[in-house]
Design a protein around this nucleic acid. Structure first.
Lengths: 228, 228
DNA sequence: GCAAATATAATAGTAATACTATCATAACAT
DNA sequence: ATGTTATGATAGTATTACTATTATATTTGC
């Protein structure tokens, strides 16, 4: 990706944080290092105290940015989906043919994040792995309905909506565009997880990856099996 | 389901528990009431202390059966998948035609559990909801590879394997039978979750349910779109 | 350049969690 | 009646996920 990314800002719902972490250097270190730590030790073992120790700051200062580690996870996930949405729109915007557009969209949302844009403090490669391993925990809670009402999942829902519309544009008669879009997004995370931990449960490997699988799946569902 | 269920025992890996909960009445109450409590309050807020209070037993006694609440979740999930596997085999065993067999299999694994068999202390309706809301938490951990080696996910893997073979039997040329099988099982849980909490992300409702969606999806992938 | 405002740090404290350890008692089997 | 096993009661521990308070930097306005 190019330098445009340097200047765009992902618009995370401001109710997710107490103070915008993009507004200070401490905030940026909280984001940068929490990504590394959650990636390395997992969300469950990650604590604000450990993060404070690592960045040479105090636990209480971190609470000035996020009221809980759950909110921090919501923030990281929202940022990731916003970033992916940007990639999606950027890469598909100029494609006129609906089938080509959808094919490109599936590539964007299912492929492994390979490169850190290295323009920001955010390591997208690690963040992608965090989303694969931890995203479900952000909504598999008793508070999900309340938090959904407060808009904490807006970006993700918008992304599913975009994919759903691209699916519908290819075949208006297909009955399940939203279910298929949510299956591709969630299923992609799951296939990548299986690849790492349960390889017998997936056919994806070096030569066939989740992208191939999902393109085949989606275009077969839409009765355009030879499109890509 | 019939009385056969009364006498079969689901063979959960015996490394998951310290003492077999099926071997005593306290053990059975632990299972019975933990299902109700996890269903009602969610796995995160559930504790052995609260369970002890509820069943009039002591926290320390519960630890004689399960060394952690994580192991209890693994037990409940294994039991559920074993039970579902039994349903699957029972319902599809006598079907000769590969397409019919697969269709029935998809119905079994994607439909909402509607009836408590009421032969055992286990409420399958609640357990199904627990699996929808909590199953991911049993493997989204840093210990997953170790626990996988110890066989804690055997039954689930066997179930994916069975479904995968049924898929392959319908179309030997299809390249992704395992990925598709895992997508159906995991995706079904996800669609049921969306139905409850993010209805805008699914097309499943009263008249089209996850079963319809996944039958359409699978048979389209296998190029037998008119089979069911 | 200085005071006021704001941001961050340090320290302490709390209720709950997820256990472990020890000892006592109840039930059950021979 | 005795020994064995299961369960219960109590206490204790390290950690977690915070909150509260006070002190010290740092920045900003004038």
């Amino acid at each position: 990706m190019d330098r445009l990314l340097q200047s765009i800002k992902i618009g995370v719902n401001d109710k997710i944080y107490v103070k915008d972490p993009e507004s200070s250097s401490l905030g940026k270190r909280i984001i940068e290092d929490s990504i590394i730590m959650i990636h390395d030790m997992g969300f469950d073992k990650f604590t604000f105290r450990k993060l404070g120790d690592r960045i040479g700051s105090n636990e209480s200062s971190i609470y000035r940015y996020f009221e809980s580690k759950h909110k921090l996870l919501l923030y990281l996930a929202s940022w990731y989906w916003g970033w992916l949405e940007y990639q999606l729109v950027f890469a598909t915007n100029s494609i006129a043919n609906a089938g080509d557009k959808l094919g490109r969209a599936i590539e964007i949302v299912t492929q492994t994040t390979e490169e850190d844009s290295s323009f920001s403090h955010i390591n997208e490669v690690m963040l992608n792995k965090i989303v694969i391993h931890e995203y479900s925990k952000s909504y598999l809670t008793k508070e999900v309905d309340q938090e959904n009402k407060e808009g904490y999942f807006e970006i993700y829902k918008r992304l599913v909506g975009r994919l759903s519309e691209m699916i519908a544009a290819v075949n208006r008669k297909y009955s399940y565009p939203s279910s298929l879009a949510s299956t591709v997004l969630e299923g992609s995370l799951h296939q990548h997880f299986l690849l790492d931990h349960f390889s017998s449960l997936t056919d994806c490997q070096e030569h066939t990856d989740p992208t191939d699988y999902f393109k085949n799946l989606v275009f077969n569902c839409l009765n355009k099996p030879n499109h890509v």
